[in-house]
């Protein structure tokens, strides 16, 4: 089959700039899951398409703002995760839940702003959309409706499955010298598993490639005909073979997809896996440069129904 991309799409600053503008500054991008922002003033900060962002819970409402103080451009939230109000550590400029400046210093006379001038100073706010436990941000000033990116069936399934994510989670990230697209392609490529992960990939997750009906179903002239945005997100389910019965699974909620390895490849850069209806693994490939990406990884269980026994 004829290739659509060339090595230059993975290596040049030209294509990196193009995809930052057309994809990462224009589409809905996953930036958090609700368990990361469970309490009032919980926040996550990150840089998306070169834009420093803070995603913050204010009394149960999750909003996204520029993480740069309007005064001297200092970072407002300095840690990746934390719990504190929107107060710049440099001179204590303080912003409310709408991103509006509410006071500048303990002595307002120091800056001499009138109340009207103060009210006009605000952090740039970005659109947030939440499906289940998944928190998406759109950096565009005119964000497209999220329904134009993820179709109704995908949104319904994401809502159904991820709404039951437990508040406990583990998160890690890794910065690597590779293009983000190769990370997503690797996820879509079951053929590499028995080669590269011959001794490490769990046996019960392996795909029977020979039984996959899509193999040999295309001829050499195949070219994708439907490149509509909702079709760029794909999902799949693999029946788990010889899945181990784990003791803790009886203590958490069992989703309808029990017995399966359910995957969602959310365009552009998310791999969401639901394993045996009882745990989640989410990978996000965040591009930093043409040849550099940040791989974020989170694992969580479905909601606990009983307390876990304490181990000695």
């Amino acid at each position: 089959m004829r290739p659509l991309l060339t090595p230059a799409h993975y290596t040049t600053e030209h294509w990196f700039a193009q995809e930052q503008a057309a994809i990462f500054k224009r589409l809905w991008i996953l930036v958090a899951v609700k368990p990361m922002l469970a309490n009032h003033n919980d926040y996550r900060s990150l840089t998306l398409a070169g834009v420093p962002l803070v995603i913050q819970n204010h009394q149960g409402t999750i909003r996204a703002f520029s993480n740069i103080c309007r005064h001297r451009m200092a970072r407002i939230q300095e840690q990746e995760f934390g719990n504190r109000a929107l107060v710049c550590p440099y001179h204590h400029w303080c912003y409310n839940e709408e991103g509006q400046l509410i006071h500048t210093h303990r002595d307002p006379a120091v800056f001499g702003f009138t109340p009207n001038e103060t009210a006009e100073i605000r952090l740039k706010q970005y659109a947030v959309s939440i499906i289940g436990s998944l928190v998406f941000v759109n950096l565009s000033d005119e964000p497209l409706p999220i329904a134009e990116q993820f179709d109704e069936q995908t949104r319904a399934l994401l809502q159904q499955y991820t709404a039951d994510m437990d508040s406990s989670f583990i998160y890690t990230r890794y910065e690597g010298q590779f293009n983000w697209k190769t990370g997503m392609e690797n996820i879509k490529d079951a053929l590499h598993v028995p080669c590269l992960h011959k001794s490490t990939f769990p046996k019960h997750f392996r795909v029977n490639i020979a039984a996959d009906s899509s193999i040999n179903s295309r001829d050499a002239s195949y070219q994708p005909s439907n490149t509509a945005l909702p079709q760029a997100t794909t999902q799949g389910a693999i029946a788990m073979q010889e899945a181990p019965e784990l003791e803790w699974q009886s203590l958490v909620q069992q989703l309808e997809c029990k017995g399966r390895y359910q995957t969602f490849h959310l365009f552009p850069n998310v791999n969401l896996m639901i394993i045996d209806g009882s745990s989640f693994a989410i990978q996000v490939y965040n591009p930093l440069a043409a040849d550099r990406s940040e791989m974020q990884m989170m694992v969580a269980l479905t909601k606990q129904q009983q307390d876990f026994p304490h181990k000695p």
Partner: peptide
Amino acid sequence: EFIHGAYETGLLEFHGAYLAQLETV
């Protein structure tokens, strides 16, 4: 050039969607 086999339609669909988005800007 890359060489894609019959099993890699998923990759081409990802590439097609990617290129379609690039054309928006």
